[in-house]
Design a protein around this nucleic acid. Sequence first.
DNA 1: CGGGCGATTGATTGCCTTCAAACGTGGTGG
DNA 2: CCACCACGTTTGAAGGCAATCAATCGCCCG
Lengths: 212, 212
Amino acid sequence: MVAQQTADVIYLGSALSLRGTRMHFERNEEIFGEGEASEYLYRVVSGAVRTMRFTSDGRRQILGFHLPGDVFGVELGASHSLTAEALSSTEVVVVRRSLLEKAASEDPKAALSWLEYAARTLDEMRDHALILGRKGAGERVAAFLLSISRRLVHGQDFDLPMSRADIADYLGLTIETVSRSFTEMERQCAIDLPSSRHVVMRNPSTLALAAA
Amino acid sequence: MVAQQTADVIYLGSALSLRGTRMHFERNEEIFGEGEASEYLYRVVSGAVRTMRFTSDGRRQILGFHLPGDVFGVELGASHSLTAEALSSTEVVVVRRSLLEKAASEDPKAALSWLEYAARTLDEMRDHALILGRKGAGERVAAFLLSISRRLVHGQDFDLPMSRADIADYLGLTIETVSRSFTEMERQCAIDLPSSRHVVMRNPSTLALAAA
DNA sequence: CGGGCGATTGATTGCCTTCAAACGTGGTGG
DNA sequence: CCACCACGTTTGAAGGCAATCAATCGCCCG
């Protein structure tokens, strides 16, 4: 089907698209590991992915969540600088890294599109550093919910693709603190939690205020 | 002098160099502000620079320190996404942004060099996010000292170009906690502090251990 | 010599973590 | 179909680490 093929493309920046093929990963399956040769870049079709880095003693910092439509795993160096795992059963499009390199080395527009993607990623990481360095637990969780709900576009309720542990490791908190923040926001009528993964945005402005 | 002119070049990545001119900034002087049109990119000749972002209520997160030789202020978008200030009397080379854009749009090698720079910056920011999200005060300060000493290349002692407040806002801590961490490391004979800005690395391996 | 600012040190508070237990839900096997 | 188990989540209690509040120190400059 044409529609199917249209979906199997990775758009990087505004002027670079690459045709790829489908792959599937199960929940918690590693897509690539830190230090591994980077053979492919990826786009999430369905499901979700976490990318992360570890301290020498095993503490985990999740650096990004990748939702349907998002591109991840793009490396300039020979090996991956992050580890990526599927949050749930996940469908991705993969494109050989060599195709990207070829396009970028032949066409400045392609290279600039790649750069566009890198710049956006960097900007997001800087915002995250601001959150990690200077915000309290409630502010972090509120900002997280706003960010995820915005990215999942739907109306005012959505399903979180990740566990409390994942959220905690993304926000530099513990599972318990994340859980308590959720409970507190429910008490303030900012959100509803009909189940632990399902969030209803009852009062986004309260949430925005809490995110400072 | 030829030597002087050689210094007035910004090297971005491995294959892109741009000739620029000198500018001078005083201590705490703003070099550019978040949201301002980005007209130039910069390289530190002498002195040092901090780049930072603020929360809506004014808390500051320093995202990077830029030491002699370092490039900063490179933007892809029309405006700066950070604020930059001189840490002390600072000499920089500035290059018009349009020159970079022209080079990158004409030559894929130039664009890839720019990308190389962006990728390195992103990688550093990810490491910093790991520190901010998952490390304790002592670990943060130890990692900071190791990083700065490595970048200042000299032997085993050096002058910190930034205040305790700057270090605190970089590491997501308070002035007092940074100060106490320094004192504690001195007590453990990992460093000496003949003055508050002068650090002697007495035992880098102890420091490396403390950085976990 | 005096003033001001940055750094250090001390005392106390408070937020988040840690430890612990109970709860709920989804999945499996009887 | 239901009982049971496992795992993720919530909730509670206690502790610890860094923040805050406060005072002193030391140094650079006028």
